[in-house]
Simulated scan of single mutants.
Amino acid sequence: MRQIPVDTSTAMVMVAQPPSPKIANRQTGEVATDRETGATLMTIDVMFVMDGNAEILNLTVPETGISGELAMGTPVALTGVVARPWENEFNGQKRHGISFRAVAVTSLTAAKAA
């Protein structure tokens, strides 16, 4: 699967919705895990502002990559962000989009306090 690196160095990023477990199967409530490490996967919505444009991105992050208090509005740094195009078919309808994954999301508030 193709992965496209995302440069976040010049963007302002803050938490829009705090992290929550990523659900792999909505019927059973099974929580998604990383295939390589077995770590629980979390989703977090961030507001990504660059060049005067703001977008809400839904990121998937391993639970081990989340550090600091990530309440709504907290400025954060993103590490190792990649975009992955996806496509599937369900009940004869094709859907497609882009998913985003990060290695880590770190609170900048905690870094300033230290």
Rank of each mutant, 00 (worst) to 15 (best):
G80K: 10
G65W: 00
M72F: 04
P85L: 06
M47N: 06
T106E: 11
E87M: 08
V82S: 08
L59V: 01
I4M: 10
A77S: 13
L59I: 00
V103L: 05
R35N: 15
E30L: 07
T79D: 09
T40R: 14
I44Y: 01
A113C: 04
L70F: 03
G97L: 13
V82F: 11
R95P: 00
R26I: 14
E89Q: 10
T8N: 11
G97S: 07
A16K: 14
F90T: 00
K94D: 00
G92S: 10
N53T: 12
M12Y: 15
N25Q: 10
L70T: 03
E30D: 06
I66N: 09
M42K: 01
G80W: 00
G92P: 11
G80S: 04
Q17R: 08
F90C: 06
V81K: 01
S107D: 05
G80I: 03
Q93I: 11
S20G: 12
L108A: 00
R35T: 07
V103W: 07
G73M: 06
R95T: 12
T33W: 05
G29V: 01
R26N: 14
N58S: 05
T33S: 13
T43W: 05
V15K: 12
A104W: 00
M47K: 14
N58G: 05
I4T: 06
T79N: 03
I23C: 00
G73L: 03
G29L: 01
E63T: 03
M1K: 04
S99V: 07
P75E: 04
V81S: 09
N91L: 15
G38L: 10
V81G: 15
T8R: 09
F100Q: 02
P75V: 08
T8F: 03
T8E: 01
T79I: 14
Q3N: 12
F48E: 05
K22P: 05
M12F: 11
P21K: 11
A39C: 11
I23S: 01
N25F: 02
G38I: 09
T64M: 12
